[in-house]
Amino acid sequence: MSYAHITLPRLLLSLALIAVAIALSRRGRLGLERDLVWGALRGAAQLIAIGYVLLLLFNHEHPAWVVLLLAVMLGVAGATAARRVEHGPPRTVLFSRAIAAIGAGTLVAVVPVFAAVVPLHPWYEARYLVPISGMMLSNAMNVVALVFERIFASARSEADQVEALLALGATPRQALERQVRATLRAALLPTINGLLTVGLVALPGMMTGQIVSGTPPEQAVRYQIVILYQLVAVAAVAGMVAVGFARRLLFTGRAQLVLPRN
């Protein structure tokens, strides 16, 4: 396989792209310069670090290390999804639930695929398990964050509607049905849009990476199709589980609406 090597000086050259954004931010007085610099450095540092971690992992493939890395990724995803939910319960309450929702979504999408579509040898084959699980965790994280953000906000802004339904004898599930539907639609929309525009607007990162590094395009495409379908399953399951948790936090066992205090 041959591919164009990116030397360090060339990599540094790509920093000019960030400079363009910084210049525009300055010109437009957007005040984003610090965020851009920090984001660029942090993003690069994280990727370089995971690059070395993966290198180590591939050279010393051991199930405990693979599982540990996946657990750390899940933890970070959970903490991110539970962060800054404006009208929701505190982070400490949401964290474990975010972990469960993200974990459930990822498991449903990952286990059957690695069992039947892309069989792993051994089962903890890091080359496949880590990057694909990472994509799933990341999508689940975004969906769960959206669900938490939206469901608590709409329960608060539409509390009178929810209570009016409860007063008519509705169950919590029935009373929150409209808000749940709107929340899940909003949370799943980016994934569905991704399905509709893939190949037309964007070539997915993983497929591009595979092609660039020498994988035959038709194989890269097949991987990408599997991943796209996994992303849909992840989003649906993680979203539903998160909604279930939110519902339990919003109602007492006696079907009373309790809005979390800010």
Partner: peptide
């Protein structure tokens, strides 16, 4: 609760 609130309308 569903039954109670059907019998007592608020």
């Amino acid at each position: 609760p569903t039954q109670f609130r059907t019998r007592v309308a608020f």
